[in-house]
Design a protein around this nucleic acid. Sequence first.
DNA 1: GATGGGCTTGACCGGCTGGTCAAGACAGTG
DNA 2: CACTGTCTTGACCAGCCGGTCAAGCCCATC
Lengths: 194, 194
Amino acid sequence: MHTEQGMERKQQLLDAAAVLFSSKGYATTRIADICAAAGVAKGLFYWYFPTKEGLFAELVRTMRTQLRRAQAAAMDPGAPPLTRIRQGTEASVIFMAEHRSYFSFLDVERTDEALAGVLREGSDVYSDDVIKLVAEAQHAGQLPDGDPRMYATGVMGSVSSFSHALRNGRLDVPVYELAAFVGDWVERALRSDN
Amino acid sequence: MHTEQGMERKQQLLDAAAVLFSSKGYATTRIADICAAAGVAKGLFYWYFPTKEGLFAELVRTMRTQLRRAQAAAMDPGAPPLTRIRQGTEASVIFMAEHRSYFSFLDVERTDEALAGVLREGSDVYSDDVIKLVAEAQHAGQLPDGDPRMYATGVMGSVSSFSHALRNGRLDVPVYELAAFVGDWVERALRSDN
DNA sequence: GATGGGCTTGACCGGCTGGTCAAGACAGTG
DNA sequence: CACTGTCTTGACCAGCCGGTCAAGCCCATC
């Protein structure tokens, strides 16, 4: 087993890895980098972790249990379900924000800096379009005021989330049905004149 | 330049790459794999593309312009902004569904099969929880009926999209403000009793 | 001061893979 | 037939990186 000092060292490695993963991505982060960042020799890595993947798994599992704890703590058992969903939602957003570096290595964009550019180069244009549409809708009184970028984020996020769920099989509905559902979903989320 | 035959060959390589990227992920797909799938020698790859990245970029740009075309075609210039947003949204979902294999290589999960397991192992449990809450809310008449998995997807997708936007700087608002916004967003999208 | 378990080092290895290259094949053209 | 530009091949290279290992350190305990 590990002594107290051992646990600290291990944590140092975990921390260093989290920072590097989030800035350079998992694949591009070399074990040597992690060790250098933690100020130890490379061989030591394998004293604490079986493989690079092993460390990754540990990192992910740790964060997941913490996130679930945060969610559970935020949800009032006595409240109606919709309220609980809302509480869980807010708690998740806050938790993820407070642990950005841990969650950002799930972002595709960080996995390979080389691809990041290509991927990003178009999304900004698209984003601007949606922002403009939102602003226009606000001007027309169809949407409540507020930062258009927020609404635009919601719209684009919905599209990609639902599409993603369809792709990986978590959702299994006819395409046109899904499209209509997402259309409704977005429109409800946007509308002010309820 | 390329002869007609050359263009075909190039397209074969692009197609093969798209399929492989979507099933194995960009990083794990070897150039040799792409060539084998297309039935040509490895050296030929570099006759048509400068680097692996070059092919990737071409693939991404092609899909992006096609997606934008589909969006533009779906949006009625005369319609009010909210309607146009909805039209663009639905068109995007449909387009992405029709080109799953092209879009799925943006999914983190495919980038490295080794990590996929670790990443997935918890999300199912979490997903089940949200589904249960949604079902409960429907039972209580707080939500319209319909597949709870759809609503759950929307909730979880919102959390991750907004958090993602905050992480990469596309959004820059105080955390608690964002959390409240996402809470509102989700609640509006869910509610039936408008 | 000896024993032993936890800890630390850094040189080293093996395999993999993106990319190169010299050598052709196969048109079409004059 | 010679010539030229497109296309095709597969052996080869170079460098990188995860993982191993033999050796040694530190320190509590006996």
